[in-house]
Design a protein around this nucleic acid. Structure first.
Length: 617
RNA sequence: GCCGAUGUAGCUCAACCGGCAGAGCAACGCUCUUGUAAAGCGUAGGUUAUGGGUUCAAGUCCCAUCAUCGGCUCCA
């Protein structure tokens, strides 16, 4: 996600690490750590890097008498911020020096986290963030005032170069040491820092604006979905407006999939344990599954994915190479037991409907079919005007073989190379990220961001080299021999939940006409027009347009306001003139108006917009 | 799941150091009959998330549970 206030879009690209802003943020983190240690002399410091829009620093403040970890209070943050400004005023210079491992161990003899970092650096191969590195490790520190931190820099020259009115401590959060949930939890302070007060204000303003398009806020205001305590966390209820969004997306998927040669199937929500043992879900995925239901001595599980069911349909008939590719699509309903703290509005739920399909291909069909899926992504993204995304190529990591990943390194490397080659041939930009694959194969994910800046996988295109064999899936090749197909799992429209959560934010609730739950609101000027208004709304509905008449007791102005707040694309106002001329006064959501429009013309225009899924208002 | 914060009417929020739970909007009723973002008056609406505890007295203090939010971990 681009920095707010980043004005260098057209200029030569400078890596973040080399910018002044990076040095300011890094230095502010050091100043904060000094302030914290002054206020909490027994505190232990971990790491404190610059991040997008700011910085953080992790601390261990020890535990209370009962062993509960101590944390920062909001008042502590105020005190820390005040002390930071005093330190900045001192104009202390940042002094770099290289030290030997022995010197470093002595310097940080009371800092266990630093000692662990030094061990990583001294042995080599592990940098301060716990990442593997091939660089030869140099141990260095930066010192300003009384604070000397194990650090490779870079920093500003002296603390006076940190603008004292352009940073702010934002929040306290728990974070595991080295990002591993088996490690102790540290207390992290997040801060933001900028080159001047104006940039800081702009950033804080942008955060406020982002909150306004948060799908959780808009989802409630626009009556799209809700959660109910008695239903359960992560289990959304779709209100009528949400159900319309779902049905429009399904209709879009149906049309696109038919065009691309898919067939629809339907499968149950539950299956016996043996199915998920065979598929590998129980060995590799059980912690994300709802626990078993035990019925008459048989264990049943709710499905977390649709693939095993589709494999059974593939297996039910003899297959020839002439039949391939076979593409089974289903908006399947799946349940995944996400940990309670991982739930996030519609973006991360426990019940979901996936835009799922499984494509069974021979090896020589792989490239064309894989690209056909990528093409489909792009078709969808054009319809929605989605421009900000990255394609992420997720591969396995050797350490996870047999645990996170099926244990066949040869096929991992082979299929990863197939994907890499396909993507390179296509010319579509992508980034490769190790250790993010599915348990059964590598994948291309499309990463997007929520309004509040959180990154999500929206669409996915996954290779499965493992599970078809486990199901004994075969087709007869042209030589008359049996071969196991590869399977592509793909979900270009994500799940309804995540897609709609994303679209709410993407459009800030102002959906294009074809998606808008309510397309037209017809508003009478006085009570004498009520009957005509009701008839007009009915007439539009008969044409397949989602129109509602506002027959309440409000005045016309109030009715327009409430339609605006619900982001209804078209408001139609009816008074004496319109009744007389069989016309309407059109007001669009953007405030533009068109008076005396013949009803026929309006209906035709609207139907054209809807049918072409136009982005135009 | 972990660290921290929060939970008052359908929504947004008040309620001092523990002392009768309140407002705006929405809903409902009446009046007005209106030309492009809020007419006026009135009525109703609450076991203060849930369950315990302390106290003469608890929205307020304590404990537990549930949910949500900011992160971590994890992910479509």
């Amino acid at each position: 996600m681009a920095d707010a206030g980043n004005k260098q879009s057209q200029e030569a690209y400078v890596p973040y690490e080399e910018t002044k802003l990076y040095r300011i943020r890094h230095s502010t983190a050091h100043v904060m750590a000094q302030a914290v240690l002054e206020l909490f002399p027994d505190g232990k410091i971990a790491i404190g890097p610059p991040i997008e829009n700011g910085f953080y620093y992790d601390f261990d403040l020890g535990a209370d008498d009962e062993g509960n970890p101590l944390s920062f209070t909001p008042e502590d943050l105020d005190a820390i911020e005040r002390r930071m400004r005093e330190i900045i005023k001192g104009n202390h210079s940042f002094e770099y020096r290289q030290v030997t491992a022995e010197e470093a161990r002595d310097l940080y003899r009371t800092q266990p986290y630093k000692l662990e970092l030094i061990d990583g650096l001294a042995v080599g191969g592990i940098d301060e963030y716990g990442e593997e590195t091939s660089e030869e490790a140099i141990i260095s520190t930066y010192k300003h005032d009384t604070f000397e931190d194990l650090c490779r820099g870079p920093h500003v020259e002296h603390t006076g170069q940190i603008p004292p009115d352009a940073f702010k401590l934002l929040s306290v959060a728990g974070a595991y040491w080295r990002g591993d949930e088996n490690n102790p939890m540290l207390q992290r302070i997040y801060g933001t820092a900028w080159q001047n007060k104006k940039e800081l204000k702009a950033y804080l303003h942008m955060l406020e604006e982002a909150k306004k398009r948060d799908h959780r806020k808009l989802g409630k205001e626009l009556n799209i979905y809700l959660f109910d305590d008695e239903i359960g966390p992560g289990l959304p209820l779709w209100q009528p407006n949400g159900a319309i969004l779902i049905e429009e997306l399904e209709q879009l998927a149906r049309e696109q999939e038919a065009r691309h040669g898919y067939e629809r199937v339907r499968t149950p929500h539950l299956a016996k344990e043996s199915l998920f043992l065979r598929s590998g879900h129980l060995p590799y995925y059980e912690e994300s599954m709802y626990p078993a239901m035990d019925l008459e001595g048989t264990r049943y599980f709710v499905k977390p994915m649709n693939c095993p069911m589709h494999h059974k349909i593939f297996a039910a008939q003899q297959r020839s190479y002439r039949d391939l590719p076979i593409k089974y699509a289903e908006y399947g309903t799946c349940y995944r037991y996400e940990k309670s703290g991982e739930l996030f509005g519609l973006m991360r739920v426990r019940s979901m409907q996936m835009n799922d399909a499984h494509i069974y291909v021979s090896e020589d069909q792989f490239e064309a079919e894989f690209l056909d899926v990528i093409d489909m992504y792009i078709e969808y993204f054009e319809i929605f005007g989605i421009e900000k995304y990255i394609m992420r190529f997720s591969t396995h990591h050797r350490n996870g073989l047999g645990k996170k990943y099926v244990d066949n390194e040869r096929l991992w490397l082979k299929t990863e190379e197939m994907v890499r080659k396909t993507m390179n041939n296509s010319g579509i930009p992508f980034v490769e990220v190790p250790d993010e694959a599915a348990f059964y194969g590598p994948k291309i994910d499309v990463q997007v961001w929520s309004a509040t800046g959180r990154e999500f996988t929206l669409a996915t295109n996954q290779v499965d080299f493992a599970v078809p064999a486990r199901f004994g899936l075969v087709y007869t090749n042209s030589e008359g021999e049996e071969e196991t197909p590869l399977c592509l799992h793909r979900a270009p429209l994500s799940t309804h939940e995540r897609m709609i959560g994303f679209l709410i934010e993407h459009y800030a609730g102002a959906f294009p006409v074809w998606l808008a739950p309510e397309q037209v609101r017809v508003i009478p000027i006085t009570d004498s027009h009520v009957e005509h208004v009701a008839a007009l709304a009915r007439r539009l509905r008969e044409e397949g347009i989602r129109a509602k008449a506002d027959l309440g007791s409000d005045r016309m102005n109030a009715k327009i306001r409430s339609a605006q707040l619900m982001k209804v694309p078209y408001m139609v106002v009816i008074g004496d003139r319109e009744v007389e001329n069989n016309a309407l006064a059109l007001r669009k959501r953007d405030g533009s108006r068109q008076d005396d429009m013949p009803v026929e013309e309006f209906a035709t225009l609207l139907k054209e917009r809807i049918q072409t899924r136009s982005a135009l208002l």
